[in-house]
Nucleic acid binder design. Structure first.
Lengths: 237, 237
DNA sequence: TTGACTCGGATTGTCGACAATCCCACACCC
DNA sequence: GGGTGTGGGATTGTCGACAATCCGAGTCAA
């Protein structure tokens, strides 16, 4: 597996830029609401505006950037309603991933998840907040990835980025490391036992936890988000 | 509500092209696997390659187009595994939408859903397959839309397009109109009664039905899709 | 006949420049 | 003083052309 050969022609320029931009947005270098000037960015990446615009378009369609015609591109701003929406949608996606793993009887997936939990445990013991956060994210990535669903993975990618934005932008209390390990382990436990209902409730509880820290006062179980999201799907007719 | 004023500056050119392209893909004008030449399309749309490429990028990130570097852009091809994946993901999304409607106690949403079911019933009685299909889609659009979730809507949009691709590309037996009305009505019924479990199982059964018609031999409950999807999320580290 | 090599055509990737549009500030009139 | 109209400046939207890359046909030698 070492020195694995990969296609020589790697990513397209637009893809590279898009990735770096995503990184910048999640890390908080690009603040929510900030305008992104094409000329400035093009100069910084040392490319023309063409590839850069393509990367932008991609991020816009992913929902990370907001485009105002003849005005410019802006990093999206997340209100409490968005935080709720992100975590509620994540709960749905990750629940679906868990169900698929359960129904496919993939022991490999369970093993991978247990390894991910172990990673969280180690990071918790080392008491490194950054490593702990990374391990946490990695668990959820593994969960979705092991579902084997291309579309769940595709959806989750954007949601994870948005989650990182939440963490970077909002003040929040870090959860107790021990309970963090516990919650994830409980999810894996439910999956291993093939208990779909338990998996659902534990994933929802896990997300509920996060929302309560990030946006106190809103709850996944309470129903509608405080701010009704506009700009939803247009329904013709 | 009549003569509603809308922003004069409408969609961007790239958005218009993207929409038309989506339409062409779903209607089967652009066949799966077909290569899309930039120059040719640009000439057809009477625009430069710039805006056209932006539209393409958008469709690529939505997963409708597949980009091969220095080769070109191709309409994605759907194998039975994809059909399974699409409907399983839809089940997850629409289940989540139903749950949100239930927990928010939105009577408006239930009313909208009942209207949508009525639309299906009318189309079924008029015995117009096209109208029936449209009404069917509209029901699911309403379901997701009424959840009030921007992200569920965003995800569902692509999934609905992919569903249309399935219907256009694959041979399939049309369902009995009566049972079609029945299945949708049952879902609404579960939502009105606030029965999350019933909503879930009925939505899953509904999708199961569709999959069994489109890709016989694969089942939502059987676990893994016949062909494991490649190109899932890359997990770093 | 098979294999490798080369050349040509076609397509995509990238760039710089021009045109259209918008926002803001300032002067102007009622 | 409040509202209106008009300029400047800056940004985005669009275009055509050039460069890089790839695929396939054709050629030649073993």
């Amino acid at each position: 597996m070492a020195g694995d050969i990969r296609p020589i022609a790697r990513e397209s320029t637009a893809a590279i830029i898009a990735r770096q931009l995503r990184e910048a947005i999640t890390s908080g270098v690009l603040e929510p609401g900030q305008q992104l000037g094409e000329a400035e960015l093009a100069a910084r990446f040392q490319v023309s505006r063409g590839p850069l615009r393509e990367a932008m378009q991609r991020l816009v369609s992913e929902g990370l950037l907001r485009s105002e015609r003849h005005r410019g591109l802006f990093v999206i701003e997340l209100d409490p309603g968005d935080v709720y929406d992100i975590y509620a949608t994540r709960a749905a996606i990750e629940h679906a991933a868990a169900v698929r793993i359960i129904r496919s009887h993939h022991t490999d997936a369970v093993a991978a998840l247990e390894a991910a939990v172990e990673g969280i445990r180690e990071a918790a013991e080392r008491d490194e907040p950054r490593a702990l956060s990374d391990a946490d994210f990695r668990f959820h990535e593994v969960l979705v990835h092991e579902s084997g669903s291309r579309r769940l993975s595709r959806v989750a990618r954007t949601l994870f980025i948005e989650t990182r934005m939440c963490l970077a932008a909002l003040q929040h209390h870090y959860p107790d490391p021990a309970s963090r390990v516990e919650e994830h382990a409980a999810i894996v436990e439910a999956i291993r036992h093939g208990d779909e209902a338990a998996a659902q409730s534990r994933i929802e509880a896990h997300m509920e936890d996060a929302v309560s820290r990030l946006a106190p006062g809103t709850s996944l179980r309470s129903g509608a988000a405080p701010t009704l999201s506009e700009g939803g799907m247009d329904i013709p007719g």
